[in-house]
Design a binder for these strands. Sequence first.
DNA 1: CGAATTATCGACCCGTTTGTTCTATGCAAA
DNA 2: TTTGCATAGAACAAACGGGTCGATAATTCG
Lengths: 194, 194
Amino acid sequence: MVDKEEYRRRIILTASKIFSHYGFRKTTMEEISRALKKGKSSIYYYFGSKEEIFEAVVLYEANQLRMRLTTAIKEVDSPTDKLRNYIYIRMREFAKLSNYYNAVFDKNLDHYDFIENIRSRYDREELAILRLLVYVGNSRGVFAVKDSEYTAMAIQTMLKGMEVPLFWRKRDLDINSRLEAILNLIFNGILGKS
Amino acid sequence: MVDKEEYRRRIILTASKIFSHYGFRKTTMEEISRALKKGKSSIYYYFGSKEEIFEAVVLYEANQLRMRLTTAIKEVDSPTDKLRNYIYIRMREFAKLSNYYNAVFDKNLDHYDFIENIRSRYDREELAILRLLVYVGNSRGVFAVKDSEYTAMAIQTMLKGMEVPLFWRKRDLDINSRLEAILNLIFNGILGKS
DNA sequence: CGAATTATCGACCCGTTTGTTCTATGCAAA
DNA sequence: TTTGCATAGAACAAACGGGTCGATAATTCG
């Protein structure tokens, strides 16, 4: 292994799969090392602790999420499509990431502040994106809102509101229809009288 | 709780979900009892051990499978549809049950014989069903095979062959096309020249 | 009502697991 | 051979987790 950083990356990839399935608590160093075909103690040559790996994994997943979202809004042109795409992907990816949240809330709240950091940073970024989307749609004459900032915040609030049942209630299939309703509400509210 | 048996049933339902997600080993009695909003030791009033619960769960799932399969072949009439339905549902349900198998192969092979019992019983039942399906299709003039027994065994062998990659390889989406190919092969083989 | 039975739970036990450390060893380059 | 990177086995303290037991609450029944 010429590059140490490269191997750290491989560990993150592998651990990510296991963490996402079993959560932080139920995932053991033994499993991670076995999946890498290495000795358990060898992992400690690259990472100081299990938490450190988890931290790197969450960071990695956060970046993945960011990438998917930016490409999702780039691949369409109209403001409504951009916003719709963003919300769709966001909710889908968040649902996939729910295991990480369950992992954190598993027992010990040690990582809580660390996760919260990522979370708050993402919140700010998301707000900026939404603000831009609304602003552009506005200046293109598709949307008709007074204040982009507050509208973006309102949308974000709704999105956050959808997360809770996503993570805590059983996954019923009416999520899609609820999402559809939200989208409908947002667009009709923005577009004025349909 | 008037009926003790009813509560055992609730435990099975709840434990089933957790087992199917985390496997036998990673599922703790603590989790099961918490999901039932009961004390950990209360569970032992209904079941003697964790293994006993697991046994009941597997038995329950096996019955569920049986039910789904019988309804699947009842709701259509033509022999080809019956056989096609049976195979489809069988493969889909087996894929869903793969977690239970992973659970067993997790480490200790204690339950192995117990699972193997259910398995062999199911094998016999399946063979009987397949034999009947082939036989009826034959007598209706849709199929054209010489020996229903051996044809049924051949079909079962193919189905078993499909299980291995289903359970052990990553779930690639070409499963459907592979299934389609198998179905095609079976029917064309049975129907003679198309 | 009170006794008997049913159901629940907290506290504890103790073998096993597991995150982490430490030391020894392989192995490539110089 | 020496140096430094990479690996893994052994050991360990701490936590975990299945299971037991006695006490207690809830319910049934006479």
